[in-house]
Structure formats: C-alpha cells, structure tokens
Nucleic acid binder design. Structure first.
Lengths: 267, 267
DNA sequence: ACCTGAACACCGTTCAAGT
DNA sequence: ACCTGAACACCGTTCAAGT
C-alpha cells in the first residue's frame, strides 16, 4: 500500500508540482523512497552490484530494516526501483532530443544520442534496466513497481513510434516491403542497445578494444538507417556534422557533465 | 594450479582426443570440473541466477566445499567458467555455419543464425557471457579462466574478420568510405547481440511483445547489410529463402532439438 | 499505523585436521 | 598432495514488541 502511494506521489510531484492531492505524510514517504534509491545507487556505483546489500542499505540510511522492507518487498524490488529511475532519466533526455530542429532522420539521431548519453551518464542504471527485466528479478518485484515500469516503457515506445510515423507521412522514411513501424522501432532499439551494451560492458574484449578512436556508434546507425531507406542517405548528407550539432545545440550541458569525470571507454 | 591444468586438459581433449600428454589424474580432475559446471548450469537453468549458490553446488555434487574451491576461486569464477562453456558451444556452431555454400553475404547470414541459435539453445549461458564481462565478476575470476576466455573470444573474432576480408577481396562487400573491417565486425556483433538480448530477456516489454509473428532478426540484418553495401542487396535477393536453406542444410539437428521444448518467445 | 532490531535460516570463504 | 567439513562473518527476510 505504501509502495503504491509512493509511486503515485512521485509521479504527481513531477507532472504537476503544485498539486496538493496528497498529505504531507505521503509526500514525506515518497521522498524517503527516493532517498533510499539514491543511497542504493551510490552503493552500486561505488563497488558494483555485489555491494548492494539490504544490510548496507540499512546501515547507510537513517532507517531500520523494517522500514526499508516497508518500501521495498525485496532486494530485487530495489533493483526495479533503480530501473524506473533510469527510465525516467531516459525519458527526460528523449524529451530534450525531440526539440532538435532538423530533418526526420536527424531527429532520430537525436533520440539515439539521448539514449547513448543516458547510458554514458549513468552506466550502472543503464545495466539496471536489463537486469530488472530478467525473470527472477521481475518475479520478486512488487506489482506496483512493475506497473510503473511498464508505463515508463510505453511512454518511450510511443515517442519512437511517433517519430517514425511522422517520417513516413512526410515521405522521408520509405519503408521496405513488409516493414511495419513496430519492426522498424525494434531495429532502432536493437542497434542502439547492442552497441551501447557491448561498448560499455565488454571493453576488455579484443574485438571491441581495437575500436578506440573511431565512432562505431554512428557508423552502425548510418548503415541501419540507410538500409531502412530513411532519406537523405548517409552518402548524401554528413551525419557526423548533424551529430555534432545535436551535441552542441541540445546536449551541451550533459556533455560538460560527462567531461568532468567518468569511465574512459565511453567518453 | 589445478585450474590451469584443467583448462589445458580440456582444450587438449577437444583438439586432439588421442593425446596422452596428461596423466589420468589430471584428466580426472578436468572431467570433474566439467561435471561441476554441468551441475552449476542445471542449478541456474532451474531457478535463475539467484539459485546458484556454492552451498547448493556442493550439495548437488558428490564433492566437498573445499574441493569445489580447489577448482573455482570464487562464485564469480564459476560464472566465468559457464561463460567459457557458452563460447565453446558458440564456436562449434560457427564452424558448422562456415560450411554453408553460398554467396559471402549468405555466409554472413549463416554466422548470425549460428549466433542466434546458440542463444536460443542455451539462453542462460548466453546471458552468462555478458554477465561474465562485468567488472566485478571479472575481478573475482581466476587469471587462468580469464585467459581462456580471451582466447575463445579471439577465435570468434578471427572467424568474422576472415569472412569480411574475403567478401571485400571478391568485391561483394564494398565498404563505405572510412569503414574498416574492425568497424564492420563490430556492427555485425552489435545488431545481432542487441536483437537477441532484447528478444530473449525483455519479452515482457510492450514494444517487443507486439512483434510476435514477424521475423525481426532477419529484417534488422537486411537493413544493416544493405546499408553496409554488401551485395547482392536484399532488394535483389530473397534472404528469407537463404535463411531457410541455412536452417535446413546446416542446422536441422539444432532446430529439431529446439522444437522439442524451450522458451516460447524465441521459437 | 508505522517503526524497530533481535532472531533465523542461509550464504561465501577459509583453514586446521585428516588421508 | 588433495580432500573434508566445521567455523566465521555476513546476508535476506520476518515479526513480536514497542511508540
């Protein structure tokens, strides 16, 4: 019950900050949940997943074990909580990306840059999203948190669909025979996800290590979108330039934040 | 020390089965290690990762804890051991794929089918490979096993490189400006890995669930390879047919094995 | 109604004692 | 030289007792 109210309260406090539909007590509880997730994140960032322990979470917080179990039904529920934080951050960046002015394919590029950026800024949270989808985490998470997760995913999915739909309408994206919006949306996700996951978590791998200096992410996208028939093709347009423009016009703040101190591989 | 001999002994027993360069004792130890990994795999397959416990591994085996710690330096070392098993299986399928007779692009398709098949046949082992690359697993694994892992990865990487090199030589693959073999090899890996990882572990996700019935994997490949400029383009050749031919001529045994009983999503 | 922390069953790892 | 299992410190989860 507590958990359910929390997620509502969190959502409300974002979408309409002035709403007073929840008591101070409920807001305080929601705040505490965010506080706990922040501490959990710090623990994981400091020493990896193995370091996330309900004992340590208790010790690092001002609350008791019982209180923490009032918020989270299990350790896995904490992970799903972190996943939802990641998705909210991702959505935030996606919304910024949607503001970029350019061709439909450039807008798609902006979404991919947002995705890449979300993974670079919070690599741990990024990996959380996949971890949270594994059956045994899913099984042990509370229904309320799973529901929140699905709603967040739907929101992202809708943004991608809309971009594709629009590109088709204005005739810049001309789908191959049999290519539905669903199929194309999945292709976008797969190429981006695959690239990020491999680059970030498999950096010790021979065939990835040798890539240093090039920009594999953009090359992958150029191939994929060319093959998808999204005009103008990369032979007719310099998407390296577009990439830089997006970086400067939309994500300069995030870039700067990254530049300070973060994993070497992905910078 | 025991661990190192084991990995050598395993390798030898594969590449030249008749070699008697190791004593019966050493072979027995190597066999026991495989036995332990088999048990570990069963534990994970039965109830997920959380179910893999050194206690349970001990209980499910005829050996004591001390003996198990003679083989594996830590729980993480067991995971890396499972990862290496997965890589060996992958290599086995890759070698079968290389036997397919067809154009260079069809041969590439055969490799991707092998990769997909390895993930479908042993989904748990597939996820193991990524898990094993995460820093905190890597850190706690024994040097010998990490070395074996790197050698296996190099072997796979070489097979892909060779295919690409050859396709360029016979002028069927005509790289875009600036596209090196490294870059293209990575693109192959990323699109395949991304597709498989999302399809297998995120099946509850809205934008993936709706894909049922289509063949997203092949669509992704067609786009990617068209964009990469690998002839003949998918507009000039029916790769759906090629896919089926590969299935029938190379992987009919694997297909049959899969057909019996396995996760619904990927069949 | 919510919070607390002792209690319990289990887990990863080690090591003195055996063979 | 290898095996054993008791022992230790730690972990996830619960719940009776408090406020």
């Amino acid at each position: 019950m507590l958990k359910f109210l929390c997620d509502i309260a969190n959502k409300e406090s974002r979408s309409c900050p002035l709403a007073q539909r929840f008591s101070k007590k409920q807001q305080a509880i929601a705040d505490r949940e965010q506080e706990l997730l922040q501490i959990a994140l710090q623990l994981v960032e400091a020493e990896g997943y193995a370091n996330l322990t309900m004992d340590k979470l208790t010790a690092a917080s001002p609350y008791s074990k019982g209180t923490i179990y009032n918020h989270f039904s299990s350790k896995e529920d904490v992970i799903t909580g972190l996943c939802n934080t990641a998705l909210r951050h991702e959505i935030h960046l996606f919304k910024k990306a949607a503001l970029f002015e350019g061709s439909s394919r450039e807008k798609a590029l902006a979404l991919h840059q947002a995705y890449l950026l979300s993974a670079k800024m919070q690599p741990i949270l990024f990996s959380c999203v996949l971890t949270a989808k594994s059956p045994w985490v899913q099984e042990k998470s509370s229904p309320a948190r799973i529901k929140a997760q699905q709603e967040l995913e739907k929101e992202i999915s809708d943004m991608v669909d809309q971009l594709l739909q629009n590109a088709i309408v204005i005739n810049e994206l001309r789908p191959k025979a049999g290519a539905t919006v669903d199929l194309m949306a999945f292709a976008h996700w797969a190429i981006s996800f695959g690239g990020i996951a491999l680059l970030s978590s498999a950096s010790e791998t021979y065939s990835i290590d040798r890539l240093q200096g090039t920009d594999p992410f953009l090359y992958n996208l150029n191939c994929m979108l060319d093959g998808m028939n999204w005009l103008p093709l990369s032979t007719d347009w310099d998407y390296g330039q577009s990439w830089l423009r997006i970086e400067q016009e939309i994500f300069s703040a995030e870039r700067q934040q990254l530049a300070t101190a973060l994993p070497e591989i992905l910078r």
